[in-house]
Design a protein around this nucleic acid. Structure first.
Ligand SMILES: [Mn+2]
Ligand SMILES: [Mn+2]
Ligand SMILES: [Zn+2]
Ligand SMILES: [Zn+2]
Lengths: 156, 156
DNA sequence: ATGCAGTTGCAAATCATTTGCAAGAAGAGG
DNA sequence: CCTCTTCTTGCAAATGATTTGCAACTGCAT
């Protein structure tokens, strides 16, 4: 089992504002998709590139507003839906909350949600993935995608 | 791996209106919980007892209305929330739809959702359950509950 | 630089679910 | 069986997240 990242927006360093975290070429993807590269879109994808956590639309709106106050929440929603359609980001609907997003492209992984803090911990189990495939196989289905979420609290 | 039931509300027999499917004593649980046994509640839990599928609030409302037309959708929502709190039913928020419910008490199982038909197929894998526990263990967490949903389409 | 289809911000609309409130029934006690 | 109190209900209005209509605006191909 592999642990990918932990925490919600907590930088993995000592607080240094270190930039350039991921490799996704959002602008290229938008261009390829034949849509216009507008200011709001640049701001949003620019910020997603630096994003390590799983922010919801409102949080993305806040972060985008800090860069360009004229951006609207509607546009954030529209852009997230657009990027989701392009497969550039993933949308997670964790229980009891609004959708949260993360950039696609990294290795597939599932999530453990800390019920006390809301923190999202990523993990991956090849064994579980394989078992899921096996189950679908037995049931005569092709899996299009799946959702595995563990909800728990720190042992102690 | 075990398959529990398949289909959405499709009777497993030839269409005979066979009654008494499950064993849950909802009325006793309500009594024990110290709440009143009202007509709407009797109707709803009575119908849940006969329920093998995973209906949403509106569908439960329709079924209840057929028995007592005076029941309101609000009461269905309130009752489902009450039963959920008592642990008498489980709520599932499958992607892109309203909450769907099923009686609690049967063995734990997870679901495969047919993307074409919306059918819900139940299955259970001890191996996956064990792996989940193992993962939480490694991460230092106690799992309170989890969600495993496979979304796919019939192979062919 | 020009023109126009694609985009945006804003407000209003949706959808599922919840809630305020006045009227209506459980059911404990008599 | 009758009362009284409290819990529930039905209805309508409120919520919260997300979507959408529309007129103003702006990429960007020509
Ligand atoms: Mn993730
Ligand atoms: Mn089920
Ligand atoms: Zn997975
Ligand atoms: Zn399970």
């Amino acid at each position: 089992m592999t642990i990918f990242a932990t925490g919600v927006g907590v930088p993995h360093n000592g607080g240094m504002t270190e930039a350039v975290i991921h490799k996704r070429d959002y602008e290229g993807e938008l261009k390829r998709a034949g849509v216009r590269l507008t200011r709001p879109r640049r701001v949003i994808v620019g910020l997603l590139t630096q994003t390590e956590d799983h922010p919801d639309a409102l949080e993305i709106f806040r972060r985008a507003s800090a860069i360009d106050p004229s951006i609207s929440l509607s546009t954030v929603y529209r852009t997230m839906k657009l990027l989701e359609g392009l497969g550039a980001i993933h949308r997670h609907a964790f229980e009891g909350g609004p959708s949260r997003f993360e950039q696609a492209g990294g290795d597939h992984h599932d999530h453990l949600i800390d019920l006390d803090t809301g923190d999202v911990i990523e993990f991956k189990s090849e064994r579980i993935e394989a078992l899921q495939a096996e189950i679908a196989e037995r049931l005569g289905y092709d899996i299009v995608h799946h959702r595995l979420e563990l909800y728990g609290r720190k042992r102690g």
